[in-house]
Nucleic acid binder design. Structure first.
Length: 428
DNA sequence: TCTGGGGTCCTAGGACCC
DNA sequence: TCTGGGGTCCTAGGACCC
C-alpha cells in the first residue's frame, strides 16, 4: 500500500524575502515588514528573530533595537507579495496535480502518487526551482497527514542538517520520537496559546506527550477539534486537502486610519471605499450578500480618551452584489451609529449571509422595474473590467472621496516592482 | 407535594489560523 | 506621537416547535 504523502511548502520570512529579491543589499541584514499603518511587525528576517523581536509587536516599542542594530523596516507592499505568491503557486502546481493554496506563503501538495520517487529528493527539487526561478527561499515538510506535514516543515526550518526538507515518512520511529520530545506542543498546528497553557497544566508539554495523550481525555477536555489534531499526529488523516477554495461565507474590509478622524464625512469616505473593495471580492466569487455590518470605534489603547464603539447589522431586502446598493445601506447604518465628538481610529464593514448568485430569492413585493437590476449588473461588470485593466480605483464612487486624508500611512513602502510599469526594477 | 422529552435553528463567544 | 487585517470552526445556551 502506498503511504500517503502530503507536502507543505512554506516560504521563509515571506514578506521580507520578497523585499530582498528586489533589493539584494538587504541580504544578511536585519529587516522587518510592518502591518497596515506601519503599526506592528508582521514579518522578520532571521537576524531580527535572533534579536528576540516577537511577531506582532508594535513597531514603536522596538525603536531602541531598530537604531542599535540598524534594522530596516518596510511598509507592507501587498501588491508585490500577492504577485510573488501567485508565481510561487504556479511553479508548485507543476509538481503535483493536487494542490491546496493554504495562505499567501503556504501550499499543500499531495505527492502520494509520486511515492515511487525519492520524495526527499523531490522536495529538494521543489526548493531549488523556487529559489532559482524566483529567488525565494522555501522549506518543505513531507508526512502522511497535513498536521504532520506542518510539523515536518517546522523541523526543516529549525534544523539545518535537514537542508530545508524534512520527510517524516522516511524517519525511524526512534528518530521521530526524539524530535517530537524536543518540540513544544504549542508548535503544533491547531494548538494556540490557550490550549497550550491548559495542556501544560495536564502535564502535556511536548509534541510527543500530545501525540501519546489519552484520546478520550482530549475529547472531553478540548472537544473534537483537538482530538482530530492528535489523530493526525498519529498519522490518521482527519483533515483533507481542499483543492478548490470554498466561497467565503463572510467578507470583511476594515482599516485603521492614518490620522485622527472626527468628521462623519471622513468616515463615510472610508466606509464607502471599504465596501467597494468588499463588493469586488463578492462579485469575483459570484456571490450575493444578504446583510451587512458597519462598525466604527475609537482607539482602545488610548485609555484616557473618551471611548466609543458601535456596530450595526442591516439585512437587505434582496441579496445583492451591487456596489451602489451596498454602499448606500452601509452609509445609512453609519449615520445611525455615528456620534460626534469622538476621535475615531477605525471603521470597517462586513458582508454576511453570502449565497451563490444562482440562489437569489427575488423580492416578492418588489415594484421596481425589472430592467434595472440587469443594467446595474452591466455597470458593475464594466467597472470591474476597467479597474482590472487600468488599475485599482480608476473608476470609483464619488462617496469614497478624492483626498482620502484618513488613509493609512505607508511611508516605508517599496516600489511595485512587478505590477506597475513606472516602478519596474531597473539595474544599472 | 407535583412541573416531559426531544428536536431544530440561531446567535454570541471562544478558540484557532496566517 | 506610534498598537493590523481577514478568515474559519465549534460549542453552549436560548427561543421555539410539536
Amino acid at each position: 500500500m502506498a503511504a500517503r504523502a502530503i507536502a507543505l511548502v512554506d516560504c521563509n520570512n515571506f514578506y521580507v524575502s520578497c523585499e530582498r529579491v528586489f533589493q539584494p543589499r538587504l541580504e544578511h541584514k536585519p529587516v522587518v515588514v510592518l502591518s497596515n499603518n506601519d503599526g506592528c511587525v508582521v514579518a522578520r528576517s532571521s537576524e531580527v528573530k535572533a534579536l528576540g523581536v516577537k511577531m506582532g509587536i508594535p513597531f514603536f516599542q522596538i525603536q531602541d533595537l531598530v537604531r542599535q542594530h540598524k534594522i530596516m523596516a518596510f511598509s507592507s507592499n501587498y501588491a508585490l507579495y500577492a504577485d510573488m505568491s501567485n508565481r510561487v503557486m504556479s511553479i508548485l502546481a507543476q509538481f503535483s496535480p493536487h494542490q491546496e493554496i493554504y495562505s499567501i506563503d503556504e501550499c499543500f501538495l499531495d505527492l502520494t502518487s509520486f511515492n515511487r520517487l525519492d520524495l526527499t529528493a523531490y522536495g529538494q527539487q521543489i526548493r531549488r526551482r523556487i529559489h532559482q526561478w524566483l529567488g525565494l527561499p522555501v522549506c518543505v515538510g513531507i508526512a502522511s497527514t497535513k498536521t504532520l506535514a506542518k510539523l515536518a516543515n517546522h523541523i526543516a526550518k529549525k534544523n539545518p542538517d535537514f537542508q530545508s526538507v524534512c520527510n517524516l515518512n522516511t524517519l525511524s520511529p526512534a528518530k521521530t520520537d526524539a524530535l517530537f520530545s524536543r518540540i513544544e506542543a504549542g508548535e503544533v498546528w491547531g494548538v494556540g496559546r490557550r490550549i497550550r497553557e491548559r495542556l501544560s497544566e495536564m502535564g502535556i508539554h511536548r509534541v510527543k506527550d500530545l501525540r501519546d495523550a489519552e484520546l478520550k481525555a482530549i475529547r472531553s477536555q478540548f472537544g473534537v477539534v483537538l482530538e482530530r489534531t492528535v489523530m493526525e499526529l498519529r498519522g490518521t488523516p482527519c483533515i483533507s486537502l481542499e483543492e478548490i477554495a470554498p466561497a467565503k461565507q463572510q467578507i470583511m474590509s476594515s482599516r485603521s486610519f492614518g490620522m485622527p478622524v472626527f468628521a462623519l464625512k471622513d468616515l463615510q469616505e472610508a466606509v464607502s471605499s471599504y465596501m467597494t473593495r468588499a463588493a469586488e471580492k463578492l462579485r469575483r466569487q459570484h456571490s450575493l450578500a444578504g446583510a451587512i455590518t458597519v462598525y466604527i470605534h475609537t482607539n482602545p489603547h488610548k485609555v484616557r480618551e473618551p471611548q466609543y464603539q458601535k456596530s450595526i447589522t442591516l439585512p437587505l431586502v434582496e441579496s445583492t452584489d451591487n456596489t451602489l446598493t451596498l454602499v448606500n445601506v452601509a452609509l445609512i447604518g453609519l449615520e445611525y451609529i455615528y456620534r460626534p465628538g469622538y476621535c475615531y481610529q477605525k471603521a470597517g464593514i462586513m458582508l454576511l449571509n453570502i449565497i451563490h448568485a444562482d440562489q437569489k430569492q427575488p423580492d416578492l413585493f418588489s415594484t421596481a422595474n425589472p430592467q434595472i437590476p440587469a443594467k446595474s449588473r452591466d455597470m458593475m461588470r464594466c467597472m470591474d473590467h476597467i479597474n482590472a485593466l487600468m488599475g485599482k480605483n480608476t473608476v470609483r464612487l464619488a462617496s469614497a472621496g478624492i483626498e482620502q486624508d484618513w488613509k493609512a500611512r505607508t511611508d516605508r513602502k517599496s516600489p511595485n516592482y512587478t505590477t506597475r510599469w513606472e516602478e519596474l526594477a531597473i539595474t544599472t
